[in-house]
Design a protein around this nucleic acid. Structure first.
Length: 672
DNA sequence: GAGCACTGC
């Protein structure tokens, strides 16, 4: 560890973790758990490797916070930021939010005296040391952050050199950059009024498999290996690639997903001898309501084996105690994006070596374990070392908008660790121009582009918000965009689908799904208000809402998330000075506003009853879950175009085709 | 007439 602290000025340390096992100084239990399971998980976490909690204290004691400097630690997940901060404060015997704090969306538990700050994201100019944890996960945010940090570090060392060599100290980077001939000076490189530029030290913590990549990216930074605490896990491969019934089972797994596999497992168990039937099965995946998720933490009855069927939520996000055996089919469902068609899809691809190690590592958290890989060892060696970074397989519009807002004009020239495809960048620039966020010269427009970049939303959603005041429906658009930004609001358990459909009927609107979402939101608010009249205790009201959600097959967690997003975005638009007006029940205005902002996502009915997405020309269908999939209007706008079994439009609303050239002439004037 | 990787602002 000392070698890290001794890293040269402006240096980078790459903290390596052994075996691809992530720093486990984080409790990844599912939110809101107050169960025994959570306690077990925390206890487990305490026993394991606490790099992300010990290192900042070490740096603090080493004087890195002298003179008001702050150590920032980024985490890819909110739970991790909160729990690690809490734990460090606890260990230091101090109140959270004082010396140690955290800052995440919807919650800022820091103060002027905070010196060790955990966070999920943010611009980190005021920090002297930045530790980026879990860098191997390569989220879009991590990648953008690394690019920015590299830029900041370069600029700061340049600034410091200039400061030493020049008798005229300006304290303003843009003045210096002119002298140095640096072509751009992003706004985030300019120090705040009166602020000093500290040389920046970076410590990138990642799994060992890709430490070299980080080291090279940061100009040959020193790599320090830290041994993780982990019990041995036996890895067992198949002799041959799996076929026959195993393969059939796999196909079932891949096609029908967890719910069906669970039924299959239960059915098979019934056919076993009685003495072997002592098995319980539980499932866990992200869109499952929290109450059901909690079941995986319950200990099995005595003498019973527990079989957990999990998506890759169990790879990193959730740590389930007591796992001895892991079965790894060797595949993963991963997001893919085609810039050409604008189509997002979930495809089944082989895992990377890092993911395979991550999965097997789950068997060795509390004692020695075994991992069965359903593929031969030779296949393992052919796997890619690490997963393709997300930035190479997602729509870039919102990232590009953010970079533009930071003053980075040359997106194609930006020093990404892995450069996104040129086509993908071009596509997003075109989209932003069509939305009016960028000028024809690719500059951030004023005020539209600037306002859009301030909203933490998909650019099309931001555009809808900004336009809504003019259509007298900002209240309705805030609700819509909030509901569209969260995981599925509707919960449809396989065995109660018909019941669920009946429950949803009371919200449904024949004009489209956007209004249906507004109806759900309004109904829930109305219910809460009524509940408040009868009941003053917050806990009881929350309980009532939970029950209401259960009865209506609404995912309570998603709904609450939407409420949080709603109040956050509402705050933003009020700060911008937009009038929060409402069209009441006049949904014509609202649908016209949808047409004016979602015009890139318009589709026309074809003679054969299918639809043509106007932007890409793609043949698509309205998703059967849509409230208007049966009515087949001539022209619709949609929220997203996804490829599953077929290309589908999800969240669809009927519009008048003549509205498009009227409300988006810049895009539809030339077309007919 | 379907199918539900995972995060995050």
């Amino acid at each position: 560890m000392p070698s890290m602290a001794n890293a040269s000025e402006g240096g980078v340390g790459v903290g390596q973790k052994s075996n691809g096992v992530p720093s486990s100084a984080k409790n990844r239990s599912v939110e809101q758990s107050q169960s025994l399971a959570r306690k077990a998980s925390i206890a487990q976490q305490r026993r394991s490797l606490p790099i992300a909690s010990e290192l900042p204290q070490f740096l603090f004691n080493g004087g890195f916070c002298d003179g008001g400097k702050v150590i920032g630690i980024t985490q890819p997940r909110r739970v991790a930021a909160v729990t690690v901060a809490k734990r460090v404060a606890e260990e230091c015997g101090i109140e959270l939010g004082q010396k140690v704090g955290y800052s995440i969306r919807f919650e800022d538990v820091t103060s002027r005296s905070t010196r060790i700050k955990y966070m999920t994201d943010g611009l980190l100019l005021r920090y002297s040391v930045i530790l980026v944890d879990e860098a191997h996960e390569r989220t879009v945010h991590t990648d953008v952050l690394l690019g920015l940090l590299k830029d900041v570090q370069r600029a700061r060392s340049k600034y410091n050199t200039t400061q030493n060599n020049s008798d005229k100290v300006n304290g303003n980077y843009s003045a210096v950059s002119g002298k140095e001939g640096i072509t751009h000076c992003p706004s985030y490189l300019k120090p705040c009024q009166g602020a000093k530029f500290f040389p920046l030290k970076l410590i990138i913590m990642s799994a060992s498999l890709d430490a070299r990549g980080f080291s090279e990216y940061f100009g040959g930074a020193r790599a320090v290996h830290i041994q993780g605490r982990q019990y041995p896990v036996d890895i067992l491969y198949t002799y041959d690639p799996v076929r026959d019934y195993l393969n059939a089972a796999l196909i079932t797994i891949l096609q029908e997903e967890i719910e069906s596999v669970e039924r299959l497992v239960r059915e098979r168990i019934r056919h076993l001898p009685l003495s072997s039937q002592n098995v319980v099965t539980v499932s866990i995946y992200s869109s499952l309501p929290s109450e059901q998720q909690m079941k995986v933490f319950r200990p099995p009855p005595p003498g019973c084996r527990k079989v957990i069927l999990a998506t890759n939520i169990a790879e990193t996000s959730v740590t389930i105690p007591g796992i001895k055996y892991v079965i790894d089919p060797g595949v993963v469902k991963a997001r893919d994006y085609s810039a050409k068609t604008g189509l997002e899809s979930l495809v089944i691809v082989p895992t990377s070596k890092a993911q395979a190690l991550q999965r097997s590592g789950r068997a060795g958290r509390e004692g020695p374990g075994k991992c069965f890989r359903l593929y031969p060892e030779s296949v393992f060696f052919e796997l890619k070392d690490s997963t393709l970074p997300e930035i190479k397989r997602c729509n870039l519009s919102s990232i590009v908008l953010q970079l533009k807002a930071l003053g980075i004009d040359d997106i194609i020239g930006f020093d990404f660790m892995d450069k996104p495809d040129r086509d993908s960048i071009k596509k997003s620039l075109e989209q932003l121009i069509a939305l009016g966020a960028l000028t024809d010269e690719y500059k951030l427009s004023d005020p539209v582009g600037q306002q859009m970049s301030r909203l933490p939303l998909d650019p099309i959603h931001s555009k809808a918000i900004i336009l809504a005041t003019q259509y007298n429906c900002l209240e309705e658009m805030l609700i819509t965009v909030s509901m569209l930004s969260v995981e599925s609001i509707f919960y449809s358990p396989h065995d109660k689908l018909e019941e669920a459909k009946v429950a949803w009927k009371r919200f449904s609107c024949l004009e489209g799904d956007h209004i249906t979402l507004i109806n759900v939101y309004r109904a829930s608010v109305e219910f809460i208000e009524k509940s408040k009249i009868k009941e003053s205790r917050v806990k009881a009201i929350e309980g009532n809402l939970k029950k209401w959600c259960r009865e209506n097959f609404i995912n309570n967690r998603s709904l609450r998330h939407a409420q949080d997003v709603h109040s956050q975005i509402r705050g933003h638009v009020q700060q911008m000075g937009l009038t929060v007006n409402s069209c009441g029940d006049d949904m014509l205005q609202f649908r016209r506003c949808l047409a004016a902002s979602f015009f890139l996502n318009a589709a026309l009915k074809q003679p054969d009853g299918s639809y043509r997405a106007m932007e890409s020309g793609q043949r698509v269908q309205i998703h059967p879950s849509s409230m208007i999939s049966g009515t087949k209007p001539d022209c619709v706008i949609y929220n997203e175009l996804v490829q599953t079994n077929r290309p589908y439009l999800r969240y669809v609303t009927r519009i008048d085709p003549l509205w498009l050239p009227e409300l988006a002439p810049q895009y539809y004037a030339a077309q007919t």
